[in-house]
Write a protein that binds this DNA or RNA. Structure first.
Lengths: 357, 357
DNA sequence: TTGTAAGCGTTATCAT
DNA sequence: ATGATAACGCTTACAA
């Protein structure tokens, strides 16, 4: 009698009057010649019982699970979600399922996450994490499972790397700001702390400002950097106050020259907007703004926020593709894939016209 | 020799000089008395080898996997993400891992999603889906795995249900709008199409308006409903035009009386904001607004958007708790858990003062 | 208290 | 071309 739960390969074998081995062969090695008669019987039995093999049992036997582990620093971040969607799609098309582990911004749990996923025999990892847990790198390579890094490099981990071209994006943003007449710049970022993408963007900002002062094209840009911290329970107001002061200092420093902010991501952009509201200032009037990450709300805040859109979906797809290639046996030196950003100019970075000053 | 990959129970047994059964007992049934000597030896071997059991093998043997399947209609929706976080946390605390399946707004794949998750032996389901796939319900209960529904009921599925108290929330929003002087109301929702939460909110809106006209407390509220459709590739502008017309009609209808919109969720709120921008109107001036879902950008759009905040995190936690209780053997009639919303009043719904008209 | 052995659902290596 | 059979890593009667 067919068992109460799911049909097993044994059920199918009995139904078709063949051995389990034959059924398995039919399923996995269709190329191996089997008599049409038997093949037909098995086929009928399979569909009659609605049989599909248990991935768990397959994983146990094969050591492979058709599972991809995706570790994300923070699901709340729209960037991560967009990447997730792209990766998920590519994986599903290839017959893989994505297992998500969300760190909830607790960078210490990186290793734990990978261990948990590894225990379910995930065949590879896509990592969009801070990369501050040094053991995590070791762990992954020790297990011999391929890894793809998204947006953030991990020191000492040799793995494929997929990311926005940060340098190009920063240059593009600055060229735009320059063209629109902004002269005194402030780059606002979350604390860099060794996070590679943050470091790259900041370095690119410094470099670009430096270039323009050394007589690059167009008028010179003066630039400074500010690190915006997250609010802590004991001093919930401190970071916001600091941010407001930084913005005020920026304007004083600028004097008559138009001053603008470059924001390192959408979280920072939101903080900045809060600070502007508190100061009673408006984007595109008291200060210009271009921000990384094009969110769905960007067009609706103030006069519209100018953004650098990342090809998030493609980044996710590419990350998954890299991984799948490795799983298919591709052996190659770690690749770096950098995709260009796109500038979406809106009101917040529009040229000041004199009477608005 | 300890194998190259992960240590197995056999490795531990060899290392400790005992049988696999003893190791297994040590791990699973500490209560069963075992000689302290042996226990110590096993313990040492376990930590020496860094052994942890393979959940896959355990699942195969026990038929249980310590996996919870979470099916989400759309990861892009902040509401879903927030619920996900809550559920994830509760599950992890209980030693379960969440396996996420994202439908990407393709409601037809509901059954497929559940089948995929079931094949990995997930012990139960948390469903935040449209509930329009009738088979999905059957499938789950047929498998005898417990299900918790979040936000959306499925017709004919008897399962625990966790959700915002939609009726209370709508009443609260309307009372607020009424108190602030708004009189002509428009409820804008995504197409209802049998999605329970959408239907409930709309019904509550109709009912509340009706009440107020039958001489409820305060001045009467006139209300109508509008369904906002998603843009299609062949007519990308049509839905936006329709929305703009609806807003214009609203104001004409209202004449001198202040008119306001109640938005069914954050996606609709964004669409509405786009329409307002196109009309050159501003929230709190030409039209008032209260929207479901308190997003992080709500304070920064226009004069600040008034919202109905859902206790998303608690909803997620509760959903997980319900499921875990069932897994522990609780047998009870399906429960309904409704949590109240919170109104966050901001500029978009503030009383008009005469000179602003 | 501990060990032996069977079995969970597969796949792969032998024979036949 | 097909069928026994062992093995993957684990749990659990049943023996000892």
């Amino acid at each position: 009698m067919p068992s109460p739960g799911r049909a097993t390969i044994a059920d199918v074998a009995r139904e078709a009057g063949v051995s389990k081995a034959t059924v398995s062969r039919f399923l996995n090695h269709r190329d191996t010649l089997l008599s049409p008669d038997i093949a037909a019987r098995v086929e009928r039995a399979v569909s009659a019982l609605g049989y599909s093999p248990s991935p768990m049992a397959q994983a146990l036997k094969r050591g492979r699970s058709r599972l991809i582990g995706l570790v994300v620093a923070d699901v709340t971040n729209p960037y991560s979600v967009a990447v997730l969607r792209g990766a998920e799609q590519a994986c599903q098309e290839a017959g893989y399922l994505v297992m998500l582990f969300n760190l909830g911004n607790d960078s210490g749990r990186e290793r734990e996450a990978m261990a948990a996923l590894a225990s379910y025999q995930v065949e590879g990892f896509i990592l969009n994490t801070l990369g501050r847990d040094p053991d995590a790198a070791t762990e992954a390579t020790r297990q011999g499972r391929p890894v793809v890094l998204v947006d953030r490099r991990h020191s000492g981990m040799q793995a494929d790397f997929v990311s926005l071209d940060n340098a190009q994006s920063v240059q593009m943003a600055l060229a735009h700001l320059q063209a629109q007449g902004w002269r005194e710049l402030l780059y606002v970022t979350e604390p860099v702390r060794g996070v590679s993408s943050r470091a790259e963007r900041e370095a690119a900002f410094r470099e670009a400002c430096h270039q323009s002062q050394q007589g690059g094209v167009g008028p010179a840009l003066a630039g400074q950097t500010f690190e915006s911290h997250e609010a802590l329970p004991e001093a919930p107001e401190a970071p916001m106050q600091a941010l407001m002061s930084a913005l005020q200092a920026l304007r004083e420093r600028a004097g008559a020259r138009p001053a603008a902010v470059l924001s390192s991501n959408s979280v920072v952009t939101l903080r900045l907007s809060a600070a502007m509201a508190r100061l009673g200032w408006q984007w595109g009037r008291e200060l210009g703004l271009v921000g990384f990450d094009d969110t769905d709300w960007a067009p609706h805040v103030g006069p519209g926020i100018s953004t650098i859109a990342q090809p998030t979906h493609d980044l996710g797809r590419l990350a998954a593709s890299c991984l799948l290639e490795r799983l298919r046996g591709l052996t190659l030196a770690p690749r770096q894939i950098l995709l260009p950003g796109t500038l979406l100019a809106r009101g917040s970075s529009q040229a000041l016209n004199p009477e608005r000053l």
